[in-house]
Computed example of a mutant assay.
Amino acid sequence: MARVSQEHLDARRRQILNGAALCFARNGFHATSMQDVLKEVDLSAGAVYRYFSGKEELIGAIVAEVLETVRDVQECAARESPPPLPDVLIPRVLAQLREVKPGTLGNGEWVFPRLMIQVWTETLRNDELSALMTAGYVKVRAAWANLVESYKVAGLMPEDVDADAMARTMIALAQGFAAQVAVFGAASPEVLRDGLRALMSMGEPRVRP
């Protein structure tokens, strides 16, 4: 029997994760069965269970992958000289997530924002997922804070800026924009970029004559 290559195994795992993410985004975790996932990816139960024991493990793998992607983007950005400003970086994060979690629903809607809302809701009732999210969030927040330190080194902001406070704010911007897309419909990353640039352009009020 021919040995299955690692490339093939990785591609099959990616196929399952993408199909499961699409199912979860479409109908939610609890309304989605493993049979729905099998139908979506057009694989046998044995083929899928070789990689994942069930829905809980699929959800955990999707969440871990998203958090790792965000952290990687931040760590790479911190090594750039000068590091990209938030109006460039936050849309870049969303664009990278689009590549990692591709696919659209029937109306052309990108799956990630809806999936994010589903994960948040599930986290409130699933202690294991909550622990995974909390651990991942701490790492992501540290990566953003490290980026803020890079801004300071590059002379882009004062030394006394609270790096963690800014990290939390940048995360909130990305999450909030994704939540808007999930609830109110598609908006391009350029909208977020332009809004951030407008905010960043604010200065001291001019004295009227």
Rank of each mutant, 00 (worst) to 15 (best):
V153D: 12
D10C: 09
V4M: 02
A198H: 13
T169Y: 13
V100N: 11
I59S: 01
F24G: 09
D87M: 02
P83K: 04
L156F: 08
I90P: 01
E68V: 01
E68G: 03
E122G: 04
G106N: 08
P209I: 02
Q118V: 11
C23I: 05
A154T: 00
V183R: 10
R50D: 14
S33C: 06
K39G: 13
C76D: 15
R3P: 14
E56R: 09
M34S: 15
T104H: 13
E57W: 00
W144M: 14
Y137I: 11
A143V: 01
L147G: 09
V138R: 09
A64E: 12
M34W: 10
G19W: 03
L156S: 05
N27M: 11
G106Y: 12
F52A: 02
A186G: 09
L67T: 03
Q15Y: 01
M1E: 12
L89C: 04
T32K: 04
L58D: 05
P158E: 03
H8P: 10
W120E: 14
G103N: 06
A77R: 01
T169E: 04
A179Q: 00
R14W: 03
L132Y: 07
L147H: 15
I171S: 00
G203R: 08
P82N: 06
V48S: 06
R98P: 03
L43M: 11
L22Q: 02
A163S: 04
L115P: 02
S81R: 13
A198Q: 10
Q15C: 03
G108E: 14
L89T: 01
S150W: 02
E204A: 14
R50K: 11
P158R: 02
A25Q: 04
F52H: 02
V4Y: 08
L124S: 15
L85R: 01
V37S: 12
T169S: 15
A131M: 15
L58E: 13
R193Q: 10
L192W: 10
C76T: 12
L85C: 08
Q118H: 07
H8Y: 15
T32F: 06
P158K: 09
